[in-house]
Design a protein around this nucleic acid. Structure first.
Length: 348
DNA sequence: GCTTTATGGAGAT
DNA sequence: TCTCCCTAAAGCC
């Protein structure tokens, strides 16, 4: 379930590995056969991420719009040219676990020490150990999909090309060196430039797309006008792009705001502070590939929190656990079919 | 083995 | 506010 940071990271992967190359397109699952046949053989010319959506441009003003929804994911395999501006080379982007194997070049096997936290986007080697490629300069990393049962014995470590289809692959994009498999998207469709523009026009500001100061004004003026609760507004993609359920909960805790306060009753300075905090958290998320929301915690407490894979936030997914600040039990409630976590004391 | 859950959103009512 | 769609991993017998 990717929030905005993942989508920007995925776009970077496309930029480095797919854009500028002719691609073979197919829909092994069969649900995007027509679209894939239109794309097949064309060259990807540009990629753009806005909020939680990604747009991949092909020859002749043809665009592919992908929204991963709650459990969509891209799997990369083959020769992956890592983004030098982001930490760790990834295979699987989008969901929590990684189904790939990374063979770092020249035996340069950087260990998890490169990343103090344990990871959202984790690379598991064949033995099940965690390994991360190092942060830094562009490099080629070979990634391949773990052999499924049906292919075991047919191929050894990474010899199979193209990689075997595993699971429900809506769309496979294949260049000479790289394979990108799309599973479970909530949206995967072709668009004209006008349609792309219309889709983007409906989205609220994204700090990585729009001017940050202008975004702050837009966000603030909308929030300050609405009777809708701030908790709902932060999840509304027409108000601000890219925030999902995790960042929503964490941003509100960090601002010590009650999620139920109507937007127009949240003090303007607090609204601005929430936007600026989103700008900061998004940048960290894109850089690290993790939803790091406790960057302001002291180092010892931070390390302790990060040691647990499933308990590394202030309030998200911590129902019943003591608030890290005041000890009050974190509550969870169902709001608009999504779970809302907050501290009734700190965010009174 | 079966059930539950998930970082989302569209469309009907 | 409800229902539905998308898929795989985690949780629970």
């Amino acid at each position: 379930m990717p929030e905005g940071h993942s989508v920007h990271r995925i776009a970077r992967q496309f930029d480095r590995n797919i854009v500028g190359r002719p691609v073979g397109a197919s829909s092994p699952q069969g649900r995007f056969v027509e679209g894939a046949s239109v794309l097949d053989g064309r060259t990807a010319t540009a990629v753009k991420a806005v909020g939680k959506q990604m747009f991949l441009e092909f020859d002749d003003d043809l665009w592919l719009r992908v929204h991963l929804g709650m459990y969509g994911a891209w799997d990369f395999a083959g020769q992956i040219f890592a983004d030098p501006t982001i930490a760790s080379a990834n295979g699987r982007m989008g969901q929590t676990n990684q189904r790939g194997t990374t063979l770092p070049p020249d035996g340069d096997h950087a260990e998890g020490a490169a990343d103090p936290v344990g990871v959202d986007e984790r690379i598991l080697d064949a033995a099940g150990e965690n390994s991360l490629t190092s942060i830094g300069a562009p490099r080629r990393t070979r990634v391949h999909v773990r052999m499924s049962e049906q292919t075991t014995g047919l191929a050894d470590e990474g010899e199979m090309w193209p990689p075997p289809i595993v699971g429900q692959v809506r769309l496979r994009l294949l260049t000479e060196l790289t394979c990108a498999d799309l599973r479970g998207p909530t949206a995967c469709e072709l668009q004209t430039p006008d349609e792309v523009a219309a889709t983007i026009a409906k989205l609220g500001p994204d700090p990585l797309v729009d001017d940050v100061a202008a975004g702050e004004e837009r966000f603030t003026s909308v929030v300050r006008r609405k009777p809708t609760s701030i908790g709902l507004l932060l999840m509304d993609q027409s108000v601000v792009g890219g925030i999902g359920n995790v960042y929503r909960a964490e941003l509100l805790f960090r601002a010590r705001q009650n999620p139920h306060t109507p937007g127009r009753e949240v003090p303007e300075e607090i609204v601005r502070e929430i936007w600026r905090d989103w700008v900061r958290l998004l940048a960290i998320g894109v850089e690290t590939g993790q939803m790091m929301t406790m960057d302001d915690l002291d180092p010892a407490a931070y390390r302790a929190a990060m040691a647990s894979r499933d308990d590394r936030h202030w309030v998200y997914h911590r129902a019943g656990l003591p608030c890290r600040i005041c000890g009050t039990a974190i509550v969870v409630e169902e709001v608009a079919t999504r779970k809302l976590y907050w501290c009734p004391s700190c965010q009174a």
